[in-house]
Computed example of a mutant assay.
Amino acid sequence: MSSLKSEKVAEMYDATGEIGLYLISDNQLHFGYWDENNRDANVGEGAERLTQMMIDKSEILQGERFCDLGCGVGVPAMRIAKAKGCFVDGITISKYQCNKGKDLAEEAGMSDQVRFIQGNALEIPCDDAIYDGGWFFESIFYMGHSEALREAYRILKPGATLLIADLITRPNTTEEFKKFAKEELDSDHIPKEDYPGLLDEAGFDLIEIDDITEFVMPFMFSRLKAGFKQHEAEVLQYVKSEEINGWLQVFENVCDNLGYILVKAKKRVRS
């Protein structure tokens, strides 16, 4: 991620208007998962379900070190730290997210277990091979997949598990949307089929790719719209109604054009 691009992503997440999304999503700024067990769940509950799925896929052990690459305000980081008894470093390019994460960790009494670093996840200020596991939770498309995987390889120990929640292109993804995503959302999306080669090139062995598009994209927009309606009075303290409509149009466009996968891989142990 170039310095200019990282600045634009930071500005996007630092923007006061984004507070509306934090309110609606219970501070979990990622998509949700809905099936027959939680069909009526709201955005925050759906996001919590997806966080738990990521935690369940992790192989991190008690007392080990985990890295959340693009951590938002750190709720998933705190969830995995509590569930697994591990120590988590969350890195975010956003000053707002970093400070909010620190506040939330302190409120939860987890400051000794979960810490936050403001910086570029492609240039993590740490030694090589120090983490026992990590994830990109809806963040890798901002960084560039090859570059992000190379940095993950550098910081993870041999045999460590890497998890990725990613928004992918589909056969119906339009060229117009790809251009919009790159120019307006500062994100690059790839098809699912690119993952095996990218992981292999970066030094990871692919364990599984779970395509959960059908449980995410058909529901996200309607749940988000309902969330904005429910919290309208609170959100309008920070943004104008036309800005809310603009956000909703973007999310509808994203849900129409992209799919959603969960990827599990291991850093190759070289002989």
Rank of each mutant, 00 (worst) to 15 (best):
Q97Y: 10
E48N: 08
I80T: 08
V43T: 07
R154A: 00
L21S: 11
E59P: 02
K240T: 13
M12A: 15
K82E: 15
I244L: 12
I19F: 14
P125T: 10
Y131D: 11
G74V: 07
T174M: 07
E18P: 04
Y153A: 15
I55S: 03
P158A: 01
D166A: 07
G85E: 10
T161R: 05
S3G: 06
I130F: 01
V114C: 00
H30T: 08
D112G: 03
D132F: 09
Y238I: 02
I93G: 05
A108L: 01
G44K: 00
D132P: 05
G74Y: 05
F215D: 15
I124A: 08
L199Q: 03
P76E: 14
Q97S: 04
D188H: 00
Q62W: 08
F219M: 14
Y142I: 01
N27F: 08
K100G: 02
W135G: 02
F87V: 01
K182H: 12
Y22H: 15
L69M: 13
E242C: 12
K57G: 13
E193W: 01
D128F: 00
C126F: 12
L262Q: 11
S271A: 15
I261T: 09
I93C: 04
I91V: 04
S6T: 13
K57I: 09
E151C: 02
D194G: 05
T161W: 05
D188P: 11
E193T: 05
F87D: 11
F177Q: 14
D127V: 01
I190G: 04
M12V: 03
V75I: 14
I93V: 02
D194A: 12
F31G: 05
V75Y: 09
L21E: 15
E214Y: 11
D14H: 09
D112Q: 03
K267I: 02
F141R: 03
D127Y: 05
A83E: 15
M1P: 09
S6K: 13
Q230A: 13
M110N: 09
K192D: 13
R115L: 08
D205T: 13
Y96H: 03
L29Q: 00
D205L: 01
E64Q: 09
C98H: 03
G227E: 14
V250S: 12
N99H: 10
E64H: 02
T161G: 07
R268Q: 14
G133Q: 04
N253V: 14
Y260K: 02
G227P: 09
L167D: 15
G134I: 11
F204T: 04
V239R: 01
F116S: 00
